[in-house]
Design a protein around this nucleic acid. Structure first.
Lengths: 212, 212
DNA sequence: ATTTTAAAATGACCATTGGCCATTTTTAAT
DNA sequence: ATTAAAAATGGCCAATGGTCATTTTAAAAT
């Protein structure tokens, strides 16, 4: 009931309100077409206030990314089934990630932007550090499941869980990026549908992961 | 010998000089930290002149990308060996693309930026259109080789060349992006080396592509 | 040579925007 | 009612992409 606790709580609420506004505008207009002024207007604060809660535009976007990673982590975990094989669960979480990329456009774009970010490990900003760790947790889900698959025999035992988790994550993200950004062009120039691309991806992954 | 031809030639030279300058600054400072003024200074023209040769900064960067795609296409073609199996040639061009991503940092970043670009097919700018087509030619190399592999038996005949070419291109680009941008972090948080990641990628691709 | 015309280049100027900070407003403590 | 601290403000600055009226340069015409 202390006044300090209340102030702390209100501060978090204000921070969250700014994040809500930022997310809304970022998702509508994209990172580069979004001005801090328009976020401020949406949040009903002055621009200066934003900088009391976030160091800069970059960090604000990273805070949105963090939400995205947390949501993704949740969706992937929901996709897991205890009674399914580890291999099947890899397919399950891949499918969940595919759906995420289609349904959560704004968050997925934030992840793509993150994938292209090269940051200084010794000099991480607050939100960048948090989102990095959240991203690592997502990868950890993959690692754990590949490890399980080696044990339950549903995944080729020659495959190293750690390395292949990073390979799967990065290559699937790259694939989903193409699906998202180049679908129209591929359809137009090569008459290839999104469904066939997805099917082919999963076909190749099955062959790659399954025991020979 | 006409004066018109000479002027045309000189125009191309000036355009190329601007491109050289732009490339130099873009590669040193990155797309967003490069100002048109600094390019103009490097090219020894005024800023206004740049806009006589390129519609805007975006198009200028796309023109650099075009150079990158042309160089990549050349390197991939050089990596092909007539006496090798089609599968082996896929590995050869993949390795060449990997080297390209490591050696030609600036061009590879331009390609990554391109991968994230969503453009209106009905309203393509000049340089964007050219680079798009150059990118398609790179993919075509993959398509042709997978097709060959189905015929010479070095690649699983269940695999559709068109679809799997796009899958391979996008997933490998995504993988190389991770290698480029996250190598330090992966090493730091998971103690996984670039070499092991690359090895694992090729292991998975071999299993995926080879006949069962 | 001189004048006219066209092509090329210039750089001052504008609007937008990320970020800053001196000042004001609000809230809590005394 | 007064003081102190916290929060918010909005005017300001510097950087920058892009434009355009003017100037400069080169070619063509006389």
């Amino acid at each position: 009931m202390g006044v300090l606790e209340r102030k702390e709580r209100e501060k978090k609420q204000r921070r969250n309100a700014i994040l809500d506004a930022a997310e809304k505008i970022f998702f509508q207009q994209g990172l580069f077409n979004t001005s801090m002024d328009s976020i401020a207007k949406e949040a009903e604060f002055s621009k200066g206030t934003l900088y009391l809660y976030f160091k800069n535009k970059e960090e604000l976007y990273r805070a949105v990314l963090l939400r995205g990673f947390i949501l993704l982590e949740q969706k992937l975990k929901e996709a897991l089934h205890d009674d399914a094989s580890a291999y099947q669960n890899i397919i399950n979480i891949s499918t969940a990630y595919y759906k995420f990329s289609q349904d959560e456009d704004g968050y997925f774009n934030a992840i793509l932007s993150y994938q292209d970010d090269e940051f200084d490990i010794d000099n991480l900003e607050v939100e960048s550090g948090k989102s990095l760790k959240a991203g690592n947790r997502v990868i950890q889900i993959l690692i754990d499941n590949i490890e399980k698959g080696r044990q339950d025999g549903s995944i080729d035992s020659n495959i190293n869980p750690l390395e292949s988790a990073f390979v799967l994550w990065s290559q699937f993200t790259g694939f989903l990026q193409m699906l998202k950004k180049k679908r129209e062009i591929i359809d137009h120039y090569f008459s290839v549908s999104q469904e066939n691309l997805l099917e082919t991806y999963f076909l190749l992954v099955e062959k790659a992961l399954r025991p020979r």
